[in-house]
């Protein structure tokens, strides 16, 4: 454990200044990954910049445009916004699945993105909603789709001095609903072996007009599966479309063998969870079109 400083700036610009000017500075949001990495000496930052006193990073707002979620908002706080559960049940349940109550009291959706674990629970759910990331840095602010944020395990597009400010999720079209499912051996406290998120939009006739399918823990980053989404779109989702989506998802997965699962198992379960998540999302969307 090497010496490290701590700062808790009150303004975004101050945080950017610190991150830009101090070699080896790291941001601290919920800390549930950072503290473990720190203790295991996997990282040796010179400065920790606590983001939780910066208004832009702790704000939650929901309006006609959609949801704006500050990057440091804890999962527990997110869960207190019942409107988020109504609009984005998949995202909501992904935040509810991360670790324990204690972990959710600290861990943020933004941190889940920035940690860039392939198995992050909220990331496939974000991808399914079409969420965008707002990134600020010395050069100003940019936004990009969440699916472009992580570039590999633990790797993101963030440059020096840059930080994730918020996540913007467009208000879903009428008849839209999402779902996130993951497979873990226990009922709680495990890292996802497979994660699958599906968002569908149904028209009044029950026909699927739009869909997004995402998967986690089966590739270097969480990713969208356009072929699986395409399989769902263009008619009333039936068993054939669901199976096609499941096959596409399983086929698109690029899992590895590790202590949590095998390639064979993960690929199979990717299909199973994609089908089940789609079924739930479709049922939720149907209730909304009624």
């Amino acid at each position: 454990m090497e010496s490290v400083r701590y700062e808790a700036p009150r303004e975004l610009s101050a945080a950017i200044e610190l991150l830009d000017s101090v070699e080896g500075a790291r941001v601290l949001a919920g800390g549930t990954d950072l503290l473990i990495q720190l203790r295991a000496a996997l990282i040796q930052p010179s400065l920790l910049v606590d983001l939780k006193w910066i208004p832009e990073l702790t704000a939650v707002s929901l309006d006609e445009e959609g949801l704006s979620l500050g990057a440091a908002v804890s999962c527990a706080e997110l869960r207190e916004h019942k409107q988020i559960e109504r609009l984005f049940p998949g995202l909501y349940e992904s935040a509810e699945l991360i670790g324990s109550e204690q972990i959710q009291g600290r861990a943020s959706v933004g941190g889940n993105l920035c940690n860039a674990s392939p198995a992050a629970d909220t990331v496939p759910a974000l991808l399914a909603t079409g969420a965008r990331c707002v990134v600020a840095g010395p050069g100003g602010t940019r936004t990009l789709p969440c699916e472009r944020f992580a570039t590999g395990p633990g790797e993101t597009i963030l440059g020096r001095g840059e930080l994730l400010v918020s996540i913007q999720i467009p208000k879903p079209a009428p008849g839209t609903a999402d779902c996130y499912l993951r497979l873990i051996p226990r009922t709680e406290m495990d890292i996802a072996v497979v994660g699958a998120a599906v968002s569908v939009t149904l028209d009044a006739s029950g026909s699927c007009t739009d869909a997004r399918v995402a998967q986690g823990a089966v590739g270097p980053t969480a990713s969208l599966v356009p072929d699986a989404a395409a399989a769902l779109v263009g008619g009333v989702p039936d068993v054939g479309r669901l199976e096609a989506a499941a096959r596409a998802a399983a086929g698109a997965s690029r899992p590895i063998d590790d202590k949590r699962g095998t390639v064979r198992y993960r690929r199979k379960v990717t299909g199973v969870l994609t089908r089940r998540a789609a079924e739930i999302a479709i049922e939720r969307a149907r209730q909304r079109t009624r």
């Binding site: 800390g31 549930t32 503290l35 527990a76 324990s100 109550e101 204690q102 972990i103 009291g105 600290r106």
Partner: peptide, 22 residues
């Protein structure tokens, strides 16, 4: 590592693992 909960405390009224709070 935040896996056992024996260090549970509240921080501003919210349940957390004190091992994962600086």
């Amino acid at each position: 590592t935040g896996d056992c909960g024996a260090c549970s405390v509240t921080l501003d009224g919210r349940l957390v693992c004190s091992c994962l709070v600086l």
